[in-house]
Design a binder for these strands. Sequence first.
DNA 1: TCGAAGTGTCGAAGCGCTTAAACAGATGTC
DNA 2: GACATCTGTTTAAGCGCTTCGACACTTCGA
Lengths: 345, 345
Amino acid sequence: MVTIADVARHAGVSSSTVSYVLSGKRAISAETKRRVESSVQELGYHPNAGARALAARRSHIVALMVPLRTDVYVPVMMEIAIAVTTAARQHGYDVLLITNDEGPAGVRRIGASGLADGLILMDVELDDQRIPVLQSRGIQAALIGLPDDPGGLSCVDHDFAEAGALCADHLADLGHREVAFIGYGTGVYTRHAGYAERTLTGFGERAEQRGLRFVHRPCDGTYESTAGTLARILADRPETTGFVVQNEGAIGPLLTLLRSSGRIVPEDASVIALCQAQLAEQFAPRLTSVTGSAQELGRVAVEQIMRRITAAGAGERPVDERVLLTPELTVRASTGPAPRTGSQN
Amino acid sequence: MVTIADVARHAGVSSSTVSYVLSGKRAISAETKRRVESSVQELGYHPNAGARALAARRSHIVALMVPLRTDVYVPVMMEIAIAVTTAARQHGYDVLLITNDEGPAGVRRIGASGLADGLILMDVELDDQRIPVLQSRGIQAALIGLPDDPGGLSCVDHDFAEAGALCADHLADLGHREVAFIGYGTGVYTRHAGYAERTLTGFGERAEQRGLRFVHRPCDGTYESTAGTLARILADRPETTGFVVQNEGAIGPLLTLLRSSGRIVPEDASVIALCQAQLAEQFAPRLTSVTGSAQELGRVAVEQIMRRITAAGAGERPVDERVLLTPELTVRASTGPAPRTGSQN
DNA sequence: TCGAAGTGTCGAAGCGCTTAAACAGATGTC
DNA sequence: GACATCTGTTTAAGCGCTTCGACACTTCGA
């Protein structure tokens, strides 16, 4: 194992000089710097993480707490996790993966052990139990998801209300009058996931403003569930010509079911999906979608936590930022003008 | 911050005694143990991770290297990552997430810095560049995926050859004579991903033994690609009645396309998917599938790396294990007896 | 009864790094 | 020419933990 002392000896300087070259915290002459750097290269030196964390009281690790639950679309989680990891590396940080099932105790563990300098929490609920722990222990954190009361923490999320509103606007612009919102399973609403509630609210308000009649139906994304949901919608409101789907799992079944009910997309029915572009393009016809960047979400969370860690390290009070990312509507082949005549069952 | 000295003072013992109570490495009287443990509870003590790593030369962290590439089905990656994290916690370990794009340099970094006690590598290629680094530096590792030459490292993987063979057997048992294997995109084959090659070989050999005529067609999983692939298969071999799909993205399109070509599944065509049970059950009809447990993969990898870390810590030479998990065929509604008459275009 | 062996606890060294303080030498100021 | 100032480097004191060796005391066998 190569230590800082080995590098110092090799370069003919003291180990503190090596440390200062590496951290840049003191002025070092160009010549010394060069010698040290080439010794580092030559010996393949990497500072011992434990020793560094102990001495500097900073681990250069951020913890990322991911949900175990699967009612969130998994590829999006993964995309965020990867974006966080990549962004963190650019700050010289590594990412520790911990799961939601550790709950508030996990947050306490990470904070008290100094394993991580900060936490990024995913899938934050409106009234999240982990937040008070964070606050009382003074653990630096960035939340992906917007709780009711972020109280001093930084948060970033998609602007789901805007996403919902974009869907309503697009359908209204195309002349639809009766639309249906196919949401997540009821469980997602009862546990108060912000994204589900906010999308629905944003959609509902804009729909009302635009004079759209609409129904909201929860749907857990299986084929059967989607079939039941669609059947109910068409029975209650046979004039429905616009569909907004938020549950990714329901998209495929919905398209199949519309087709087998004799409805052509987009001539007879328009479909907007709230999902990743990649997924929207996988269907036939390609789906008009409203999409936010999962990567951006991860990247912003990392920037936020880095600023907080830096501030806290300098003895300043970290500022609590609140960022909402604007989603985009991409028109593809699944939406079109509302049919002139009534229903066509 | 509460330290071991605080606990010692509170319990009226020396800090080394506290350490021994926590690690169990020396005999401690029942009474002392009780006192220490209740002090730990009361003060909410968590050992400082950096200090512990430095003194014990063990970080209690394993690194998990995940691919950035997206041609592997993402939910499976995530499932493995979660299983690894959960299993590691049961050994008192945490998981550091690093991405494949750091490559061999990343492996070196983790090894040299002592950040992690061991590495779990996902998506290991047949001739993986990271393996020689692991070997030369003596870094403990468990591979998920079976390379050509694991040389001293532990590996675990699904028995993909067996998975392929199960598909061939099932179709042969049902009386099919002409079958098609819809694989991953060509890129997966050219970079020698073991899972793709081994499944195909296992399928091909068993198909030959059972007197099946078969074609293999790569497919990158988009709707267009699947349409092209299916069209070619039906043009070349109109008598084809059995389909094996490995690319998860191609499943939905394939079903839609078969239906629109007038083929009813399973009456006119049988479809077997090589995918998670959860996914197979999401389609209509529910798909007969061959599935291996992603969770088990992660769990076994953790067990392997833990055994290696323990052995290396005790100065022993770790044994290189090689485990293949047997996949299971689950018959659902997408496979049935081969149609009696010829094709039905 | 004595030495050997076993049990339970403590003291202190040291893991590899950071950083405050000290210091040596060059440079500038009046 | 004496002093302050700046630049670049070193010395040394920890950071909080583990673990080796020492030690006090008990138990056992001869």
